[in-house]
């Protein structure tokens, strides 16, 4: 142990607190904020997909994350392949008319 080690603060936990809060609040502000961006995005994405494919209301998952300085928006849509085929088949005659 060096002599300088004696002067080093043993409990410099404030930077940890700051980082944890910054990550947590970036997430919570979006999830709980007045605009509720995630809920709005999820509903609109769901509505758009539902116009073309039969889809369960819980098949769209929208999550927001943060890694360092970069925020990520992750959209996860769960659609069974047979439904996509059926949806395309339904659309085909409509296209022919147009």
């Amino acid at each position: 142990m060096s002599l300088f080690g004696l002067f080093k603060p043993r409990n410099a936990t404030a930077p940890v607190a700051r980082e944890r809060l910054q990550i947590l609040l970036a997430h919570e502000r979006v999830a709980l904020g007045p605009d509720n961006l995630i809920a709005v995005l999820r509903d609109e994405i769901l509505a758009t997909i539902a116009k073309h494919v039969e889809i369960a209301p819980d098949a769209v998952k929208v999550t927001m994350g943060q890694q360092g300085a970069v925020s990520t928006l992750e959209i996860d849509v769960d659609i069974p392949t047979e439904k996509i085929a059926a949806g395309l088949a339904r659309q085909a005659p409509a296209k022919a008319v147009a």
């Binding site: 603060p9 409990n11 410099a12 404030a14 930077p15 607190a17 700051r18 910054q22 609040l25």
Partner: peptide, 15 residues
Amino acid sequence: ASRGEMLGVADVLEI
């Protein structure tokens, strides 16, 4: 706060 054991004024303001 100055020893880094407690969030500082600048930390809280920034957050």
